[in-house]
């Protein structure tokens, strides 16, 4: 998703960031379903929401749940105005799918915490003013999920350095972030010390439950529809099946928005939508190739340019926010496989 801070501020002004947050923190006190409608339309239109997306989707809700009052008052209204952007500090060079094995450490001192270590694959770290990061606050014990804690980190704090990592397309959107004796205040601990694992699972449920898990490829489908011949049965059947997939995924995604609105935990259905959504999205460039054999030259038309981007971006869909293997593990656990 492309990034445009001016667009984010305009959305904030319109009241379309933090829609479901309390008014006293700059939110709109709208329902989760109303928020869903706006988010879905933004994605369907391909709007450049990259700057504020994480803040709106997961950091804001997380701060509402676990942030101290003075922090919520200071940050949430600016997030809702589209001025403050967040990044997510979870993965580390040696801890990807095995998130509980992280080694970056937060040590308590007299005026707060001292952070050391590094995070990787951090999307937007070069733009975000804040990170919410997971750090180890105790020894590596037999219970690997204990002694992890979440922190709010001002990215301007001395000792933080951000190194861009080019992705396979050559674009800079994710980074490695280094922490070298970074001092942060005591009230920047989110929730309780040692509760980080459960909090991160809550955060990931927000991350995995949105409609972006099936709408990343919609621009390609639109181009495919315009390139198709209504009298060619190969075209009509393939497009029709994709319409059915999209209609189904949208209905499931809407169901999750309903669960969030009722205060239910959508972790399992969200994992299912993510798995099924990424399968469809990754299949879309394959079907486009099969139907139209699109030449991916830079002089091609609109479908070639969308296709060139998506065919390269598609592998990331089932990696970001939890790999396919991890997501299916969550589903298997939900099924009661012992």
């Amino acid at each position: 998703m492309s990034t445009d801070p001016a667009f984010s501020r305009a959305l904030g002004e319109r009241g379309w960031i933090g829609m479901a947050w309390p008014k006293r923190y700059g939110g709109g006190e709208r329902s989760m379903l109303e928020r869903y409608v706006v988010v879905e339309e933004l994605l369907a239109a391909g709007a450049p929401c990259g700057a504020h997306w994480v803040a709106d989707r997961q950091s804001g809700p997380l701060l509402l749940l676990y942030g101290q009052e003075q922090i919520k008052q200071a940050l949430l209204p600016r997030m809702a105005r589209g001025e403050l952007y967040f990044c997510i500090g979870m993965s580390e060079p040696n801890s990807g799918s095995d998130l509980a094995s992280i080694r970056s450490r937060a040590t308590k001192n007299q005026d707060g915490w001292l952070l050391n270590g590094s995070k990787i694959w951090t999307s937007g770290a070069h733009l975000a003013q804040y990170m919410i990061g997971l750090f180890r606050t105790g020894p590596v014990s037999s219970n690997r999920h204990a002694d992890l804690s979440q922190f709010l980190i001002d990215m301007a704090t001395p000792g933080i350095s951000v190194r861009p990592i080019k992705d396979l397309t050559g674009a800079d959107h994710f980074n490695e972030v280094f922490f070298d004796n970074v001092r942060i205040p005591a009230d920047h601990l989110l929730g309780n010390e040692g509760d980080g694992w459960n909090q991160v699972m809550t955060e990931l449920a927000f991350e995995r439950s949105g409609p972006e898990r099936y709408l990343s490829c919609i621009q390609l489908l639109i181009q495919m529809i315009d390139s198709a011949d209504r009298d060619n049965e190969r075209h009509t059947v393939a497009i029709g099946k994709l319409v059915a997939e999209m209609a189904t995924l949208r209905q499931m995604s809407l169901g999750i928005a309903g669960m969030l609105a009722r205060g239910e935990n959508p972790a399992l259905p969200a994992a299912i939508v993510k798995d099924q959504g990424t399968l469809v999205e990754q299949n879309l460039p394959e079907i486009a190739h099969d139907l139209f054999g699109i030449d991916l030259s830079s002089r091609g038309g609109p479908i070639a340019s969308v296709m060139s981007y998506l065919v390269q971006a598609a592998p990331s869909f089932s990696i970001r926010g939890g790999t396919r293997a991890i997501v299916r593990g969550i589903i298997a656990k939900g099924l009661g496989l012992r």
């Binding site: 198709a228 209504r230 009509t236 393939a238 099946k241 319409v243 059915a244």
Partner: peptide, 10 residues
């Protein structure tokens, strides 16, 4: 059924 849906979409 897909041929119907696809034709309408196109």
């Amino acid at each position: 059924w897909a041929a119907q849906l696809g034709r309408q979409a196109i």
